[in-house]
Computed example of a mutant assay.
Amino acid sequence: MPTPFRHTRPPSPKSATGRTAEVFEQIAVDFGIERPPTFVVLSSVPELLAPAWALMRESLIAGDGSRTGRELAALGVSLANKCPFCADAHTVLLHATGDHALAEHLARGGTPENEEHARVLDWGRRTRVPGSALAPYPFPPEQAPAYLGTALAFHFINRIVSALLTEQLLPGNAQRFRAVRSLAGRSVARTVRRSAVPGAALPLLDAPGPGPDWAAGTPVGPAYDALRTAALAGSDLLDADDLTLVRETLWAWDGGHPPVVLRGFPNRRERPAARLAVLAALAPYRITEEDVAAWREPSRSDASLVRLVAYGAFAAVERIETTMRVPAARA
């Protein structure tokens, strides 16, 4: 049977125990979808699964402000990152919020007619470019932790999805049809429109720190800190030269997508780990079977590949986050 997974075979969620089982139980209740592949693909590494879910939950689902607005921010991020799976998912979730006309207008490639909605979508797109001028915010300053957390969560999730899942949200790309999008949205509408209690995901984490200043005093901060710690731990899969190469590449990155011919990228044969990490950061949809095979050896499990991809993905997130100039934007 075909699966949505590329390069790995995650364990069956039905066999999950302990913290992994607790995460999937909370996802089913608060996201409205049991065992979504977006998170199943991380389940071979529970220490990544829990904070990835926590950051999305505490920002997109339980954060302050309009769920429609945060969905638009996440959609903007997903479009900027060329992640059709996530872009389609957020279109479906806009149906779930009850914004059916907006969802269909965006599904056809349109721009929101509502000026506030258009500004939020554009803001989400612009977050891909490190150092981009993101102020003034298209939302109240007190909602910044929720919106910034949502944007950064999806800069991570987009990269995981593009690297390790196919582009099809539904079998046969059924989400192409308006009736299917609407029906899928309505199936989770009750959950999406229900208020979620902030902080409920934090007990799933291992003693996180308070997180960055822009999320101070909110559950978004510890969730971000936990994901940062877990994802960057994947650096142990690269040697010192690889790490230097990844960091230098990310520092020079201007937010663009690489050309068809990947000039200047680490060589697959000489530096396969660095190549996978850099691709995960800048163009995860360009990771091929050949790239993975060049890195694979008997000691390198699916869990190791997930950790390596997560490291590259979060290296890009950190590059974006550290150049957001948040204090200036909130002044």
Rank of each mutant, 00 (worst) to 15 (best):
G18L: 08
G18Q: 10
R19Y: 07
T20M: 11
T20I: 11
E22T: 12
F24Y: 10
F24L: 15
E25W: 05
Q26D: 14
I27M: 06
D30L: 15
F31P: 15
F31Y: 09
R35A: 12
R35F: 06
P36D: 05
P36E: 00
P36L: 00
P36Q: 00
P37R: 03
T38N: 09
F39T: 13
L42W: 01
L42N: 12
S43H: 03
S43C: 02
S43K: 01
S44Q: 12
S44C: 14
P46C: 06
P46F: 00
E47I: 04
E47K: 13
L49Y: 01
L49T: 00
P51V: 02
P51I: 02
P51G: 13
A52H: 05
W53L: 02
L55G: 12
E58V: 15
S59Q: 10
L60Y: 08
D64N: 08
R67G: 00
T68N: 07
G69R: 00
E71N: 09
L72I: 04
L75D: 00
L75Y: 00
G76N: 08
S78Y: 02
S78T: 02
S78C: 07
L79G: 14
N81L: 11
C83M: 06
C83I: 02
F85Q: 10
F85H: 10
C86V: 15
C86T: 09
A87H: 04
D88V: 14
A89P: 01
A89C: 05
A89V: 14
H90F: 05
T91S: 03
V92C: 03
L93K: 03
L94N: 01
T97C: 05
D99V: 02
D99Y: 05
H100F: 11
A103M: 01
A103P: 05
A103Q: 03
E104Q: 11
L106H: 10
G109N: 06
G109Y: 05
G110W: 01
G110P: 14
P112H: 07
E116G: 15
A118W: 00
R119P: 05
R119T: 06
R119E: 10
V120T: 10
L121T: 04
D122W: 01
D122K: 15
G124P: 04
R126Q: 11
R126A: 09
R126I: 04
T127P: 03
T127E: 02
P130M: 10
S132N: 12
S132C: 14
A133G: 13
L134C: 10
A135L: 11
P136M: 08
P136H: 07
Y137E: 12
Y137V: 15
Y137L: 15
Y137W: 14
E142C: 08
Q143V: 11
Q143K: 07
A144R: 13
A144H: 11
A144L: 14
P145T: 06
P145F: 04
Y147I: 15
L148M: 09
L148P: 15
G149C: 14
T150Q: 05
A151F: 03
A153M: 05
F154W: 03
H155E: 12
I157W: 03
N158P: 01
R159L: 14
V161E: 04
S162W: 04
A163G: 13
L164K: 14
